[in-house]
Design a protein around this nucleic acid. Sequence first.
DNA 1: AGAATTATCATGTATATACATTATAGGCAA
DNA 2: TTGCCTATAATGTATATACATGATAATTCT
Lengths: 243, 243
Amino acid sequence: MKTEKDGTLHNRILGDIEHRILSGEWPPGHRLPFEVDLAQQYGCSRMTANKVLTQLARAGMIERRKKSGSFVSQPVAQAAVLQIHDIEAEVRSLRQHYSYRLLARSRRVATEADRQRIEVEPETQLLDLVCLHEADGKPFCLEHRLINLTCVPEAADEDFSRSAAGPWLVSRVPWNAAEHRIEAVAANAELAKTLLIARQTACLVIHRRTWGADGPVTAVRLTYPGERHTLVARFEPGEAERT
Amino acid sequence: MKTEKDGTLHNRILGDIEHRILSGEWPPGHRLPFEVDLAQQYGCSRMTANKVLTQLARAGMIERRKKSGSFVSQPVAQAAVLQIHDIEAEVRSLRQHYSYRLLARSRRVATEADRQRIEVEPETQLLDLVCLHEADGKPFCLEHRLINLTCVPEAADEDFSRSAAGPWLVSRVPWNAAEHRIEAVAANAELAKTLLIARQTACLVIHRRTWGADGPVTAVRLTYPGERHTLVARFEPGEAERT
DNA sequence: AGAATTATCATGTATATACATTATAGGCAA
DNA sequence: TTGCCTATAATGTATATACATGATAATTCT
């Protein structure tokens, strides 16, 4: 995403209108000048004004109605962009040493329980991986992953004993949709033992399901000890991307 | 965000190129046809092809280099759009009855502890609210909120005993940045009592800080009993918005 | 007056054109 | 061979223009 304003007329106009909206000078519901008037004010052609307004409309900051004009949008339901890091990068950014251990690997036909986690057809071959990501040798995150071998048959030939499946998949399989579910759970005995934490410790659990052109690719559950981990999301409503 | 493909030439071309990229037909690094060639293939002018490519570039799906051409981007760090609902709407969407109770309201000059939560100057007047959102009469979410009275002096005259401060603020104060932090915590005695849950129950905590043109507006901490609440985030990398 | 028609206005989409910008390739001279 | 210059190719930005679309306002007809 480019955000620098590179002196072009287009971006100057865009920035100016954005500023008026964000500062509250043009509150929600306010009708902005017609395209021809904007063009005159800024000394540009209608096409240029039109492109700016089109972009603002795509960014959701204004709504456009034929004949009536363009209006500042009501603030919409809040949305935030959540960065889902690669775990290795996440550990390194904490300046800790990253290591990885494969705890279990099995291949099977999807069971009913599996199909609760990943929406595959019955009889689909799956790869089931359980692995532990460590920071400075201490448990950082426990990963449970199912991979749909119909979509990614090459995965059957990888043993994933040295490196995690996540980065391997990302670079190999094009995907076009993902769903994340985030919840808090208390550690049960098994989880506590694996993560070396006390029972009942609150943990942050991220479920991620990914789809490609041929259907579900993978479903992964990441469990982080709660006290040691937070997710951060940012939202800049005015940051319409610049050309 | 408009996503329907409304038969225009622009959107036909956009959808076609998107499809080639998402299906893997044009993998990351692949050079797509030059603008003039695209224009010829689709029987349109270069301007139209240019606008489509510009849009794809803004959506992050392609990178453009002068003289060299346009290339399919490497998949970027995953990002997900997290919907932060209005709590009342959230409860209603579960088809439960929403109610609200103000538990505490006080006004004071920012303490050192407050300034850990909201980045205001010393001596700033704050409004501190604690309230409970209920679904079908049962605790649903506990809210701790600080409001910066320098930014929102009108808030001092509202008692917030009948309705929550969130929606009131949203409709009154333009804001331009927000930060969310999500973590899991175990309920302490006080929290357990307020939310009517067992001690040590895992809870999902969302910290949201909001900035307006005049600095920090509000900081809010929402605590949900973990077993009963999940956050959902979606990401559609190919969903470049359509004109 | 009320309904149907027409005119008008603002936006939406597309084209042709012009010139600016910038990275690459090729040529030319020291 | 090296360094510089120039030509060229592709994108970037902006303009003028044309016609389509859809909503509102004005007019006309019954």
